[in-house]
Amino acid sequence: MRKRAESRLLALTILALLLFSPPLLLLFDRPLGLGFSALPVAIYLIWALVILISALILEGRHED
């Protein structure tokens, strides 16, 4: 695991923090249908995506 992967993980952490925090999160807080907010769907999707990216970084070419 080299420095590159570490910087990517750090950037991903900051990105995830930003996406999970209010100013950006408010963008997803709009009706989706049946009166439900899109917020939970958005959070679960971002969450899954962040985990997928981190898995790719961690398990990818750096496997030893």
Partner: peptide, 19 residues
Amino acid sequence: LSYLLIYLGPTLAMLCGWM
């Protein structure tokens, strides 16, 4: 949705866990 925060926090911590 506040229940989610209890799990999003650890997710963030684990993302930089390697360091």
